[in-house]
Design a protein around this nucleic acid. Structure first.
Lengths: 244, 244
DNA sequence: GAGTGGTCTAGACCACAAT
DNA sequence: TTGTGGTCTAGACCACTCC
């Protein structure tokens, strides 16, 4: 083990191309929180010495990670860890009523329920975890300017985030928290139209006859299950927007 | 003008990096139909001579286009124009009823309307085009196993695809066609819940009281407006799925 | 064996940022 | 002025495909 320069022998052992080994090294530094958002990372020449390769090889690794939006690079300045892309997918919930209005949105949230349970057989299969794994459960209503915009029903793997239920959701959303403890999320989602039950309708301040936009999302970090969430939005007031 | 090797002087004039000039050249050959899906394109060494650059520069251009899924490359064989990717975004419409069923889906489509119009002031602003630009208009119903799954109401810029209305939609969807004439699409979309009018409801074989999942999408290719589409899906039968 | 893409080197010149 | 990333060269060796 060295001090200033990390020991990278674990990355150079395998038969992968050198540029891929460097990419894996950088990815791991970010994923394990050694390098955080906005941090300046080693220069190309520094990585050349560390990995004993030419500059073009390091350049390719860093250029590809930049194309993947994991790094940002500035000529004359250096290479930095990028801010994570917004919400994981297409999410960015727009208030139809206030679409034309300015900003100054005030976000508040209210915890309706917290608890824990053990994964059922169906959940275990769907989440690719062992049956009986402890899952932490939260139901939170999010408001924008005192208007409910989302009910978030979420399950979190307790082995990934044992302190999940102790967080203060007035200063941080579950998404923000999970992006920190489980970066580089992958997963699947569905979007559909559903009618809310009485409890959900009341919490969203809508009648049970009002169809909702429902997003269901399962996320993994490093191929390990992190969280599952079902998010309900009143269909008369909100829509999803995104970029391609 | 040359014969076997194209005249590429129009690409090498500007001050762009050499690898970008080569990328633009390849993109144009595909966009203008000179090179079509599955075609073998010139080798790296051939492009080195054409553009008078080193192999690493050509390699970078072709490698980036491969990462963008526009080309596929085989060691020992050559570089080919890729088959266009499916739907542009997160789309992949699942039939809830047949979710568990096998494949063997049969896709058919029926053209409800075609025509052309000139861009209104609002459209011109929204699409970033000049007022009065000729837009080609189509309304198509897509069926899967004879069940209507989507109404696609689309506007296409006639300068990008003047022969749009002459296509045979039984062999190709508008999306597939547009991917060929305008590769690397970018743009924005929204997803919302809406009630269909009588005409849309009838075409989708649902009552007007059935909420629909509606996706609206504007696409640009090379920062030039290509197309806008509004797509209606019956909310009781279908949902969107995707990966993060 | 000839041709292809996949990777890599050890230099180089440049534009730009920080100082 | 020094250090950074952006680009480019003119070679090289390799694995693979096709003949």
């Amino acid at each position: 083990m060295q001090k200033k320069t990390s020991d990278v022998s674990q990355y150079t052992r395998d038969a992968l191309p050198a540029y891929q080994q460097i990419k894996n090294y950088v990815l791991d530094q970010i994923q394990h929180g050694v390098w955080r958002e906005g941090d300046l990372i080693p220069t190309e020449l520094s990585l050349c010495e560390t990995f004993r390769v030419s500059r073009m090889t390091v350049n390719r690794a860093l250029r590809e990670l930049t194309a993947d939006q994991l790094l940002v690079r500035y000529k004359g300045s250096g290479t930095y860890v990028a801010q994570p892309k917004f919400q994981s997918t297409l999410i960015e919930i727009r208030n139809i009523a206030q679409d034309v209005r300015d900003r100054g949105h005030r976000h508040t949230s209210k915890v309706l329920h917290t608890g824990s349970l053990t994964a059922s057989k169906a959940q275990a299969q769907r989440f690719r975890i062992r049956c009986g794994t402890i899952l932490l459960h939260s139901i939170i209503v999010h408001h924008e300017n005192d208007i409910p915009i989302q009910i978030e029903d979420r399950l979190v793997d307790s082995t990934v985030a044992p302190d999940y239920l102790e967080q203060d959701w007035s200063t941080m959303t579950p998404n923000q928290y999970l992006m920190r403890v489980a970066p580089l999320p992958t997963g699947q989602y569905t979007i559909e139209v559903r009618l809310p039950d009485k409890k959900i309708a009341d919490s969203l301040d809508i009648p049970t006859s009002q169809p909702c936009l429902v997003m269901d999302r399962i996320t993994f970090s490093n191929n390990v299950f992190t969280s599952q969430a079902t998010m309900w939005h009143p269909g008369n007031r909100y829509k999803f927007t995104g970029n391609i």
